[in-house]
Every structure is written in C-alpha cells, then in structure tokens.
Amino acid sequence: MFRNNYDSDAVTFSPTGRLFQVEYALEAIKQGSAAVGLTSKNNAVLVALKRNAEDLGSYHKKVIKIDDHLAIVLAGLAPDARVLSNFLRTKAMESKMLFNRPISIQKAANLLADKAQQNTQSYGSRPYGVGLLIIGYDESGSHLFEFQPSGNVLKYKANAIGARSQGAKTFLEKNFESFDDLNDAELIKNGVEALRQTLKDSELSTSNTTIAIVGKDGLKIYEDEDVEPFLEQVTVEEEGGDDDAQDGSGDERMEEDGAAQ
C-alpha cells in the first residue's frame, strides 16, 4: 500500500496541509453500500441498499430511527454509526425532556459534526469511519444533511453516499429541480431510481432495500415485503433494463458494514 510519514495519527498535518487519517476515514464510507437521500417541500426520503456478508446471514441494518421526526442512514463502519446514533438519540430526548420540543434537524447535524470534529484533534483517537445521511422534518420543513467523519455537515436537496454513489448523484443532479413539488410516493420512486444507478450486476429486491420517509406525520421505515410496492412501481416503467445476476450483495469490495445488530 501507499504510505507516507504523516498518516500515523489524526492530529499531524502533512506539509501540504492535509490530515491523512481523516481522508482515509472518508475512504471507509466508500466501502459501505450505497444510500440515497432526497427532499421535497413536504418530505425527506432515504433509500438504501443493504448488504449481507454471506447468503445464509442476515442483512445489515442501514436506517436507524433517532426520533419520531428524525432518522439516519449509514455507509461505512456500522458500529461507529451505532455510537453516533445513540449519542443523537440521547440529544433528541434531552431536547424533549428540557424543552418539550423535538430537536431541530440543523441542531442534530451540528451536534454530530462537533462530536466528529473532536476526534480529528486529539492524539490517539480515530475519526469515525462512517458517513451518514440525516433526514428529518421540523418546524422549518423537511431537511437532508450529509455528515462526514471530518466534522463536515452540509445541507442538501439530494445526495448519495457509499459504494458507486456517483451514479446516483448523477441521476439526482439531473432531476433534483423537479423534486420540490413531488408527493411522497413520487419522491420515493425517484430515490429508488437513483439507488438503481449504483448497481452493477445486481437488482433491488425486498430483502436488500430499505426505504424511510419523514414528513408532517412523522417517520415511516419500510423493510422487507413492505418495500415491494415501491420496487414494482419502478420496474414496471422501465422494462428490459439490467439482467439479473447473483444476489444483491452489491460490489466486490471488502465488507465493512460491521456485525453489530
């Protein structure tokens, strides 16, 4: 492997002003399976591809509920995501306990960013090896944020992370301008289509697809047979397409979505 003298800890800059450990952490996200997030005026949607390490094993959980109005999807090290989601759940509860109001999505994203940033500035600690998309609905409407282990948090209209997410991004860039006025079903449809662009020789199925939608009426997470109607919608419209091969285990890279369930 490539090596250099400035990547043995997260606190030493290289002479060119880079923090290699942090950049490597960003690479870990690309090892995880793809996830897509997109927003309309009234809804925010996540569509994610689940992976299973072996045919006999279960699929890794991708979407984690934080509160009735807030959810995240992860790409990268799942155990790290669990730490972050438990942290965020605590903060969401704190907001309810102290102020009797759901935590704002912007605030939630900022809290995660601050937590991740700390790991990039103390010797001996490791940046989180996971990227997140955060969706939520609060008093200022629907929101989508991308979280990175570098401590960056940015607001998006639509975005994708994980393995081969560039395909989804291209699709979203082409179509995002029409998303604002879509209803929930149409928005999910676009999300599913975007996720399709990340596949090489596999298909979306009920067992490897997770869908989450949040809006005025709260959060709904669809798994297994519940995603069927959304998949059908898409396959009916574009017949032919890709021929199926193997199962939905995504790409040939190392499995990084950890084992903790």
Partner: peptide, 19 residues
C-alpha cells in the same frame, strides 16, 4: 448559535423553567 433559527415558544420556555 445554529444558523437556522428555531426560536423558543412559550411552552418550551415553560418546560425549561419547570425542569
């Protein structure tokens, strides 16, 4: 501090004072 403004309403202030 957060860019987006989410001002406290009366019921939020009341909850905080109660705690």
């Amino acid at each position: 501090y957060d860019g987006a403004s989410h001002p406290f309403k009366a019921n939020h202030i009341h909850e905080y004072l109660n705690k």
